[in-house]
Design a protein around this nucleic acid. Structure first.
Lengths: 196, 196
DNA sequence: TTTTTAATTTAACCTTTGTAAAGTTATAAG
DNA sequence: CTTATAACTTTACAAAGGTTAAATTAAAAA
C-alpha cells in the first residue's frame, strides 16, 4: 500500500509534524518517534531528511517563519485598538506558536538566529508604529513606546498561555469565547483610559 | 569525612535541592541525579526519603508553599500602587517560583491540589481586594476586578519571564535594574490613567 | 534493460534516567 | 555488649530516546 514515493511531500509531512510536536512540547520534550508517528512515517526518514533533532527544529522554525504571512501585521490606525487587535491575532493565528515561545522562555532550546531575527523585526515594527502614533499625538508623551509594546504583549499573551492563572482568577478558561469577549472588551476599556 | 548522620538535615537538603532543580527545569526536565548532586548526597537517598520523582515534587511544592510567608501579601491601600507593588514582590521574592509557574503552564506536571489551592486563595484575595476598593470608589465601576487582577498578573510577570521578548522590544534584560526601574515607573503611570 | 540514485525500512547501538535490591555502617535501645 | 533500626552506598537494570549502519525497494537515467 502506501503512496508513491515523493521526497517533497515526505519532507513537508515531517516539517508539519515537527511543528506540532515542537510547539506543543518544546525542544526537550519533543520526541523524534512522536514526530514520525504524527507524520505517519518511519522514524529513520527523519534522519534521512534532516541531520538530527537540532537541525530539524531549526528548519521547522524557519519554515514556520516563512509561512506566517506578514499580512497579519497591519496594525489598526487608532492605538486604542492595538491591544484588542493583537489579542485577536494571537487567538486566531498564533496560539500554537505562542505556546512555543513559552517553551523558549524557560527551556534550553538551540538558537535559531533566523527565527529570532524575524520576530525581533515584527516586535520592533510594533514599537515603531507606536512611536509614530505618539508623534501624531495619539499616544501620551510620557509613555515609552517600547514599554507600551511590552505591555501589549503581556496583556495579549499571558492570559492565553497561563491557563491555570486565568482560571484561578477569572474562573474562565482562556479558550472560552466568553472569556475572550470579556477580555477584548476589557482591553478596549483600559486602552481608552491609557491613550486619552 | 562526611558529617554525622542526620535524617532531618538530609531531608532538608533534598527538598532545597529539589526546589532549585524543579523550579529551574520543570518536572520533566528535572533530574534526580542532578538533585542529588546539588544536595551533595547519594542519589539513592532520595528514594530512601521519598517514594519517587512524583512524590518528591509534591513534597517540594508543599514545602515551598509553607515557607512563603503570607506576609508579602499585604497590598497597598491605593490601587494605583498595586501593580508596582506586585512587580516588586515578584522581582524580590518570587522569581524562581514564577519560573516554575511557567513550566506548569505548558509542561505536564503532576497535580498538586495543595499548592494549587493556596495559590488560588492568594489570587482570589487580590480580586477581593480590588473589588473592595471598587466599592470604595477607588476603581472605575466598568472594570471587572478579576480582569484587573489578571491584568496585574500579566504586567508583573510576563516581562520578567519572557526574557527574549523583553529584550527584543526594549533592549533590556528583565534582570537589569534599569529596566526594572523604568517598568516600575511605567506601571505607575498607566495605573494612574486606568484608576482615575 | 541495465545501472544508478534516492526513498524507505529493519536492526542495532549507546547513553541517559528512573527505580529496585541488596549490602554496609552508624546510632540507639535493651 | 549485643542487637535492631535507620542512614547511607554500591550495583544493577529496564525503558526511553537520539543516532547510526546496513538492507531493501522504487524511480530515473542511460
Amino acid at each position: 500500500m502506501g503512496e508513491i514515493r515523493n521526497a517533497e511531500r515526505t519532507r513537508r509531512k515531517i516539517l508539519d509534524a515537527a511543528r506540532e510536536e515542537f510547539f506543543e512540547k518544546g525542544y526537550n520534550g519533543a520526541r523524534i518517534e512522536s514526530i514520525a508517528k504524527r507524520a505517519g512515517l518511519n522514524k529513520q526518514l527523519i534522519y534521512h531528511y534532516f541531520k538530527g533533532k537540532e537541525h530539524l527544529i531549526n528548519e521547522t522554525i524557519d519554515d514556520f517563519a516563512g509561512s506566517v504571512s506578514s499580512g497579519n501585521f497591519i496594525l489598526p490606525a487608532n492605538p486604542k485598538h492595538t491591544a484588542e487587535f493583537r489579542f485577536k491575532v494571537n487567538v486566531e493565528h498564533l496560539m500554537d506558536f505562542l505556546k512555543f515561545t513559552a517553551w523558549e522562555a524557560i527551556d534550553s532550546i538551540p538558537e535559531n538566529s533566523n527565527g529570532e531575527e524575524r520576530r525581533k523585526l515584527v516586535l520592533q515594527s510594533y514599537v515603531e508604529d507606536m512611536r509614530s502614533k505618539q508623534d501624531m499625538g495619539l499616544v501620551p508623551k510620557e509613555l515609552d513606546p517600547s514599554l507600551i509594546t511590552l505591555m501589549m504583549s503581556s496583556l495579549t499573551i499571558y492570559p492565553l498561555l497561563y491557563e491555570n492563572v486565568t482560571r484561578m482568577i477569572t474562573g474562565y478558561k482562556p479558550e472560552d469565547p466568553e472569556f475572550q469577549e470579556k477580555w477584548t472588551d476589557f482591553l478596549r476599556l483600559i486602552s481608552e483610559r491609557i491613550f486619552d
